[in-house]
Design a protein around this nucleic acid. Structure first.
Lengths: 214, 214
DNA sequence: CGTGAGTTTGAAGGGAATCAAGACTAGTGG
DNA sequence: CCACTAGTCTTGATTCCCTTCAAACTCACG
């Protein structure tokens, strides 16, 4: 499940997948890249590191919309403003592409317009998978789903380095941090994963995991 | 919340908002328009009636992805196959636009490419709102959110005709039919809505509803 | 006026949340 | 290099919101 929002058919090049380069910017861990309500002047590509996009309710409840890994694009909007906040989950480099320039280029080159559509539609697919997960899956299915998704997207075989905290996992999965922790511990005692350190997870039985993720 | 996936700036015309017409097809209540896994050869616009798009897990759990009302587009995909099933919720007329033709037109006309992008990005926005709702909101907040969204999209003042069954509401909201029913009854005894018939809901206090939907 | 699908209501149970410690772990500075 | 410390994570006990199971009700339709 959860196919990645990435341009997998084009390795990031000097000129970038849209045919021109944008400036690259470094962000320290937990630094904000843009905020909900900011003017959406750029779209972004993760060059290295990883990014979370999230939304906050007035009372502090947080929902992480998506984790963006190296290669992924984020910050694409229909309107003029960003509707989510983007923060670096580790020291991260992002390429910034000016939206106006991209829009102009898309107006001239059909392949660019097509790539932009594809990127957006893939984001929609991932969001739909997320909806299914949050609406109809158990805590265990959600946690397993996230692990399998991360493994697929990073190309990990069985050694998985997770870029996010337990709190981030919880806020992505619509659970609490305690439930995420308990579920991981349970998966470990079931023998399908091992947890040598908090940010490193060994997938010991991928077939079983695929079954549990439903 | 939940801005509609519609072309609000173009009233549906004889030629359609993409500048050309497609054939219109009628579907009876509960009839399938396309199914998960079908080849995505068309995109669709609801002319009259309403449509649900949903996904099914192997064990029968169902998640409704979106309700599509008159004017809305649905069936837009990044890949070659439909990833959801679309069914008419009432007797419904849909316009079918051949995907290949649309893709060709988008390659020639930047305004069409732009409209297609916008439609997709708006669908993504709505899906993100849905994620927030399912991940972090209570049953009451979800039900109120749906009612307010439907009222906004249909332009209803206080008299709201809901096109879907309680089961559909439950499967959209990630709840059970019993919880939806109880929540509506509770909202009625709180005086913020009235339920003269099952498919007709009176919004008696929109300010209170906006607060409760949070 | 029966008949049945859809809906509402009730009672009981369960999965995840909440509340509360305790155990790591990763920095920090001596 | 190694305590010290703050933040993160895990574990435990309890609570609660929603689900499940069950039955009654409503209303459209023959």
């Amino acid at each position: 499940m959860l196919s990645p929002l990435r341009q997998t058919d084009h390795a990031p090049t000097a000129t970038g997948p849209f045919g021109f380069t944008g400036p690259c910017l470094r962000h320290a861990r937990d630094e904000e890249i843009f905020s909900e309500g900011d003017s959406a002047d750029y779209i972004y590509q993760v060059i290295s590191g990883s990014v979370r996009t999230c939304r906050l309710l007035r009372d502090g409840r947080r929902q992480i919309d998506e984790f963006h890994l190296a290669g992924d694009y984020f910050g694409i909007e229909a309107g003029d403003l960003h509707r989510v906040t983007a923060e670096a989950m580790a020291d991260t480099t992002v390429r910034m592409v000016r939206r106006g320039a991209l829009s102009d280029l898309a107006a001239q080159r059909a392949d660019v317009a097509r790539a932009l559509f594809r990127l957006t539609a893939e984001g929609l697919q991932r969001s739909q998978d997320h909806v299914l997960m949050l609406g109809r899956k158990s805590a265990r299915e959600r946690v397993v789903g996230l692990l399998v998704d991360l493994a697929e997207r990073t190309g990990a075989q069985s050694e998985l380095d997770v870029p996010m905290s337990r709190q981030d996992m919880a806020d992505y999965l619509g659970l609490t941090i305690e439930t995420v922790s308990r579920t991981l511990t349970q998966l470990q005692s079931d023998g399908v994963i091992a947890l040598p350190t908090t940010r490193h997870i060994v997938l010991r039985d991928r077939a079983a995991l695929r079954r549990l993720g439903d």
